[in-house]
Simulated scan of single mutants.
Amino acid sequence: MRRIGRQASAQQGGFTLVEIMASIVVLAIVGLALSAYFINALDNAKGNQNKTVMVNLARNTLFYIQKQADFKKIREQIDKLEDGQNFVLNSEGCSDTAHCSAYETYVSDPDSLTSILNPVINDIHYRVEISYQESLYATLQSDVQSGGKISDYLIPVRVEIEELTPDEEGNLVVSDQKREKTEVEGYIADEKIR
């Protein structure tokens, strides 16, 4: 009986060292490929989250300008523009420490405009710029609605959001990555049609 037991155990062989090492190498390669996939997916998720924040900031800015802007004063300023000039509201001269005195004629609350044009979300600094879209205005002028031009009541604008990143000296500069910029188009409407 002992003989049968010894023969059975001798026939039950285990894995050789070479087989174990080969399986470890295969598992390491598969694990490395999966970790690269998950790192890439995490990077994409972070980029999409940042893009969503920028779109929401742009919509918030558009809503703010819609409610706070003096339509007549902005229209007067735009009508004074010469060819090649553009009406722009941005954070130049309107930092997070100084209020936006340059825009007092266009918005009723320039102090809150400072936080709109220089938002900081999740410790990320953004720059907001609102610019007039002359090309869209030309198409509005040709559209006639109930005897009047809709262009008399709407100012087409584009809100651009850019992420600011610190450079070597610690100054905030515009990021050069494509995902770090977002544009939203909209209109500043006259109170008469709201």
Rank of each mutant, 00 (worst) to 15 (best):
Q68P: 01
K46F: 05
I124G: 05
S35C: 06
A45M: 00
S131D: 14
A102M: 01
Y103I: 06
L89Y: 06
A138K: 14
L154D: 04
I78V: 10
S23M: 02
S131G: 12
V88W: 00
N122H: 09
N171L: 12
E129M: 14
V30C: 07
Q133D: 15
S146Y: 15
R158D: 10
S115Q: 10
S131L: 09
L27G: 05
S101H: 15
V53L: 14
A58K: 11
F71K: 08
K51Y: 07
E134F: 00
S142P: 01
E82W: 03
F63H: 13
L34R: 00
V55R: 10
T52Q: 04
V128F: 03
D152K: 14
S142C: 02
Q77G: 07
I161N: 08
D167Y: 13
Q66A: 04
Y37P: 00
N86P: 05
L32I: 01
I78Y: 08
A58P: 04
K51F: 02
A102K: 04
A36N: 04
N56Y: 14
S108H: 10
Y37T: 07
E76Y: 09
L62T: 10
K80C: 06
L136H: 13
E169F: 08
N56P: 06
G170C: 05
T139H: 14
A45F: 03
S112G: 12
H125G: 07
K149P: 09
F63M: 14
E162C: 11
V120I: 14
Q77N: 11
D109M: 07
I161Q: 07
V26L: 10
A102I: 09
F38H: 12
L81Y: 06
R59F: 15
K80E: 12
F71C: 04
S151H: 12
L32A: 09
T165G: 03
Y126V: 13
G31T: 08
K46T: 02
G84F: 08
D109R: 14
N118M: 04
L154C: 08
N86S: 08
M54F: 06
K149Q: 15
N50S: 10
A33R: 04
A45W: 00
Y103N: 07
L117K: 06
C100K: 03
D109Y: 00
A33C: 09
V120W: 03
N56T: 12
Y37N: 10
V107T: 05
I150N: 03
L154N: 06
Q77V: 11
G147K: 08
D79N: 15
L89H: 00
Q85F: 05
K149T: 15
I124C: 06
I116Y: 00
L164G: 05
S131F: 07
S151G: 03
R158V: 15
L27P: 00
A98G: 13
E129A: 13
F87M: 06
E162I: 14
K46D: 04
I130H: 04
R127C: 09
T97E: 13
D43V: 03
E160H: 15
L62Q: 12
L140A: 10
I130P: 00
K72I: 08
D143E: 10
S135M: 13
I161E: 07
Q85K: 11
K80G: 01
I39P: 00
I150Y: 01
V159D: 08
S95A: 13
I39V: 09
V157F: 05
T165S: 04
L42A: 02
V157C: 05
L32H: 02
N90Y: 11
A69I: 10
L42D: 05
Q49P: 00
G93K: 07
